[in-house]
C-alpha cells in the first residue's frame, strides 16, 4: 500500500514541476513590467528601477531566476507581493483558509446529495424520478455558474433581503464567538448553494451512470433471485461496486477546491484564492500568480494521491496488481 502510494507520488513530481514552470514562464513573459507595477504610476527616480530589479534578481537570466524560485519555494518562501504589501505565503494561507471554509461544506454537501440523487435516478432508470434527476443534472452542467450566482443574489439578497450580497464577514461582526460564526454562516449560504448545485449535478450524473452500469451486472440478478429488495440491492451491492468513478469525481472536486472558485468568488466577493488570482492577474502581481500556480500543483498531487489511494482501498485488485508489477 505504502509503496503504491509512493510510486504514484513519484509520478506526480514531474507534473508538479511542469505546472510550476508553466506558471513561472507565463508570469515572466506576460506583457507589462513588474518593476513599473511596483514603483507605481510615475517614472521612477534615476537608478531606482535598476536597483529594484537587482534586489529581486529580475536582472538575471530566466533559468537562473527559475532555479532561485524553486529553491526558495522549497524553503516555503513564495516571495513578496507588492500589491498586498505582504509575503505571498501569508496571503495565500489567509485566502486558502477562506476558500476552504467555502469549499469544504459545499463539497461535502454536494457529494452526499449527488450520490443520493444519483441513486434515486438509478433505482428506476427511465422512471419519472429518473427523468427529473437527468434533467436536473444536465441543466446543472449547462448553467453558467457565475450567472446562477448573480440570479441567486438578485432573488435572495436583493428582492427578499435574506442574505448579504458580498464578502465573508461583516466589519461589525463580533471578534469571536457565536455572533461571529452566525455572521459567517449568513455570508456562506448563497455561495455555498451555488457551488453545491454546481458540484452536485456532476456527482449525481456520474453516480447515476455508474449505478446503472452496476445494476446490469450478473450478481444483481443473483441478488434479485435471492429475493432482496431494490433498496437493499442498491445499498449492499450497487453502491459498493459503483464507488470507483464516484470516488474519482469527488476526489477531483476536493483536490481542485484548493485553487478556489474563480467565478463564484468573484461574484460574491469571497476573499478566497480565486478572487485573489483574478486581482493578481489584473495588478500584474507576479509573485501571487506564481503562488497560485504552486497551489495548483499541490492540488494536482493531492488529487492523484486521494483518488489513487481511495481506489486502492476500495478495490483490492488494484493493490495486488501493483504489488506484483
Amino acid at each position: 500500500m505504502l509503496r503504491y502510494g509512493l510510486r504514484r507520488l513519484g509520478w506526480a513530481v514531474p507534473t508538479v514541476i511542469g505546472i510550476v514552470a508553466v506558471g513561472f514562464v507565463l508570469t515572466h513573459i506576460l506583457p507589462g513590467d513588474p518593476v513599473q507595477a511596483m514603483i507605481g504610476e510615475f517614472p521612477a527616480p534615476e537608478g531606482y528601477a535598476e536597483h529594484i530589479r537587482e534586489k529581486f534578481g529580475l536582472d538575471r537570466p530566466l533559468p537562473v531566476q527559475f532555479w532561485l524560485f524553486l529553491t526558495s519555494l522549497l524553503r516555503g518562501d513564495l516571495g513578496y507581493s507588492f500589491a498586498h504589501n505582504a509575503p505571498v505565503t501569508d496571503i495565500i494561507f489567509t485566502r486558502a483558509g477562506a476558500t476552504l471554509a467555502l469549499m469544504i461544506p459545499s463539497l461535502v454537501l454536494a457529494s452526499v446529495l449527488g450520490v443520493v440523487f444519483g441513486a434515486i435516478g438509478a433505482r428506476r432508470a427511465g422512471s419519472r424520478s429518473d427523468v427529473a434527476v437527468t434533467a436536473f443534472t444536465v441543466s446543472g452542467q449547462s448553467v453558467p455558474v457565475f450567472w446562477l450566482a448573480m440570479m441567486l443574489i438578485l432573488v435572495f439578497s436583493v428582492r427578499l433581503g435574506l442574505f448579504p450580497v458580498t464578502g465573508m464577514t461583516s466589519i461589525s461582526a463580533p471578534e469571536s464567538g457565536f455572533g461571529r460564526f452566525t455572521d459567517f454562516l449568513r455570508h456562506l449560504v448563497l455561495p455555498m448553494v451555488t457551488l453545491t448545485l454546481a458540484y452536485m449535478t456532476v456527482v449525481a450524473r456520474v453516480a447515476r451512470s455508474a449505478m446503472i452500469e452496476s445494476l446490469q451486472e450478473d450478481y444483481i440478478l443473483t441478488a434479485e433471485a435471492k429475493g432482496l429488495k431494490n433498496g437493499e440491492i442498491l445499498r449492499k451491492h450497487v453502491l459498493r461496486n459503483s464507488l470507483p468513478p464516484i470516488i474519482t469525481v469527488i476526489g477531483f472536486n476536493f483536490g481542485y477546491c484548493l485553487t478556489g472558485a474563480v467565478l463564484t468568488e468573484t461574484v460574491f466577493g469571497w476573499p478566497g484564492i480565486g478572487s485573489l488570482f483574478i486581482q493578481a492577474v489584473t495588478n500584474r502581481d507576479y509573485p501571487v500568480i506564481e503562488g497560485v500556480f504552486v497551489l495548483s500543483a499541490i492540488a494536482v498531487v493531492l488529487v492523484n494521491l486521494i483518488v489513487d489511494l481511495l481506489y486502492a482501498l476500495i478495490n483490492p485488485k488494484i493493490r495486488r496488481a501493483h504489488a506484483v508489477a
Partner: peptide, 18 residues
C-alpha cells in the same frame, strides 16, 4: 494528462492575459 490536471480556468485567464 498534464493538460487535464491543470486548473483550466486559471491557466486560461493567465494565457489570455498573456
Amino acid at each position: 494528462e498534464f493538460f487535464q490536471v491543470m486548473p483550466t480556468l486559471i491557466v486560461a485567464v493567465a494565457i489570455v492575459a498573456l
